[in-house]
């Protein structure tokens, strides 16, 4: 515990040490205090905030579309064996194409606009969500289904009251994985589909002007935001899980 708390401190100390001794040129790795200075100046100009808000909006729209579609698709092929046989092979074949590979085609179809960026993020969020929903549904113990049919549950009630709650842990894993994927692809989408704003733009601007500090500010911001969002999802997962176990006890 102590070790993991002091990690950022140690990291910054180490960073300070190797840069201040002049061992590493500031063009390769700038001093921490310069990075903080750039961070603060970007922050006070509200430019950083604008980049963050735009990127967050992109990642959230893509992520939400992706998990909604992934959930529905996973549920469909999970609930119906015929559905699985019809759709799953095609799904697995498409999954082999690396997400990044879709970018040139999607750009040709939709141009350099907001839509292709969100679409690429949505596609990348779709796969883990669909897979995990599917496995979650398929791993529901058959006793649950039998019990539910004894109680005369209709199909919709069975899905809502039995299958989805029982598949929830796997579904939540899917949401977490999808979120991680969305962040990875967000930066790729912002770098490869040119955009005037966004954290990816901030980073590549920094590269074009050889402003190492700005590149690092961008990278650290993306990492921190991704980290915070993952933490939030994990917290949410715990709350849901606790609610579920209480529900089961009742």
């Amino acid at each position: 515990m102590l070790v993991s708390i002091t990690l950022p401190v140690r990291l910054i100390l180490f960073w300070q040490l190797i840069t201040s001794t002049g061992y590493v040129s500031p063009h390769i790795l700038p001093l921490p205090k310069n990075v903080i200075k750039i961070f603060l100046s970007l922050f006070s100009e509200e430019r950083l905030m604008l980049h963050i808000v735009i990127s967050l909006r992109r990642v959230m729209s893509g992520f939400l579309i992706g998990i909604a579609a992934g959930f529905s698709f996973g549920l469909l092929i999970g609930l119906s064996r015929t559905g699985e046989k019809i759709f799953a092979p095609f799904f697995h074949a498409l999954r082999q194409v690396p997400m990044i590979g879709w970018i040139p085609l999607i750009v040709m179809w939709f141009g350099m606009s907001e839509l292709p960026r969100i679409l690429v993020i949505a596609i990348s969020a779709f796969y883990p969500m669909a897979l995990n929903t599917f496995t979650g549904v398929r791993n529901v113990p058959s006793e649950y289904i039998e019990l539910a049919s004894v109680y005369g549950y209709k199909r919709l009630k069975l899905i809502r009251r039995v299958i989805i709650p029982a598949a929830l842990p796997s579904i939540i894993t899917g949401i977490t994985l999808s979120l991680g994927m969305s962040w990875v692809i967000l930066v790729a989408a912002e770098l490869l589909i040119e955009t005037p704003v966004g954290i990816g733009r901030l980073i590549s601007n920094g590269r074009e002007t050889c402003n190492m500090e700005q590149v690092l500010v961008g990278i650290i911001t993306v990492a921190l935001l991704g980290f915070i969002m993952t933490m939030m999802i994990e917290k949410l997962a715990k709350v849901v899980e606790r609610g579920r176990s209480i529900h089961q006890e009742l």
């Binding site: 930066v187 990816g200 961008g218 990278i219 990492a223």
Partner: peptide, 10 residues
């Protein structure tokens, strides 16, 4: 935690 594509410019 760093999305690896962000490292490309670096």
């Amino acid at each position: 935690q760093v999305p690896q594509f962000a490292l490309m410019p670096l």
